[in-house]
């Protein structure tokens, strides 16, 4: 029997990729052609073997690494800059406290001044 269909036709038939009329023609031919039926079966087995043994799982950790790269990074300061900022803010608070003390409680401020000078004076005498 003459094979009027190519291997490409059989392969496309298997994948349901032939135009409807051509599909019917191949189907009819396969009913009467054992050689083409065998070829089609070989293609089917080849595809099945690849589906079963050709697939590889995603390596462990790859999906996680990719998803992590998608997440926006949290804002993180350089440690040196972070400590500098803490020191500057602390100094600022102390200075502002001193200025506020002098402005709103001048009596208390002068008392503290006297205490400090008294303490310094007694230290000087003892030496």
């Amino acid at each position: 029997m003459a094979h009027e269909f190519s291997l490409e036709d059989l392969s496309a038939f298997l994948d349901d990729e032939l135009p409807a009329e051509r599909h019917l023609q191949v189907e009819a031919h396969l009913r009467s052609c054992p050689a083409c039926s065998r070829e089609l079966e070989r293609f089917e087995k080849a595809g099945a073997a690849f589906r079963e043994h050709g697939r590889r799982p995603l390596p462990a950790g790859l999906l996680g690494r990719m998803l992590r790269r998608l997440r926006p990074k949290s804002f993180k300061l350089d440690p040196t800059l972070e400590w500098g900022l803490i020191l500057a803010v602390t100094l600022g608070i102390v200075l502002a406290g001193g200025v506020a003390l002098k402005a709103y409680m001048p009596g208390l401020f002068s008392q503290i001044q006297q205490m400090i000078s008294g303490a310094a004076g007694s230290l000087g005498q003892s030496n």
Binding site: L7, E8, S11, R42, F43, A46, A49
Partner: peptide, 20 residues
């Protein structure tokens, strides 16, 4: 696409052939 698929399937079928 068609010709590459036929070559791939033919070769796979050949390699799987003798024992099948």
């Amino acid at each position: 696409v068609k010709s590459r698929l036929v070559r791939a399937r033919t070769l796979l079928a050949q390699k799987l052939g003798p024992e099948d």
